[in-house]
Amino acid sequence: MEIKHYQEVPDHVLIHGDAVQVADTTESVVEIVQWLAEHGIVAYASPQSGFLAANLLIPEGINSYYQTGGIVLPTDWVLIEKIDNGINKGNRAVILPDWDFNRRFRGPDDDRRGYRFPRTFDLSLRFDHLR
């Protein structure tokens, strides 16, 4: 299990922490469960069909812009974010699919800055009722 520090790509980064990618083996899932437990996040490994690995189940954490809980599938990423906002203090898991994690978060060897995510709304869908 390779743990690296990742942070959001934009310079005004608020979210950062250590992250791992889930592999399709039960050993990987068990390692991540133990790693999360070390940071006070209770997760579960549970058998399932489809993938080789057991399911990685993480209960919903403190409210976040990102997913904090649910079933994490192989190749998805889990990032542990420290929370200390005066009211809540602790850690929460941020869960993202691989393609989205890679565009939003950069590792120690990645010098991307200020990347803006493309938004391609089809406005015609929003204003259909006005026609």
Binding site: Q48, F51, G70, W99, D100
Partner: peptide, 30 residues
């Protein structure tokens, strides 16, 4: 909803229906 659980399918994942009619979420590699 598959095998008694709820699996999240995000963009680029596959929703698969097997010959028994079971619906599942899979990654392309798997």
């Amino acid at each position: 909803k598959s095998h008694g659980r709820t699996y999240p399918a995000s963009p680029d994942d596959l929703i698969v229906r097997d010959s028994h009619g079971h619906i599942d979420v899979r990654k392309k590699y798997s």
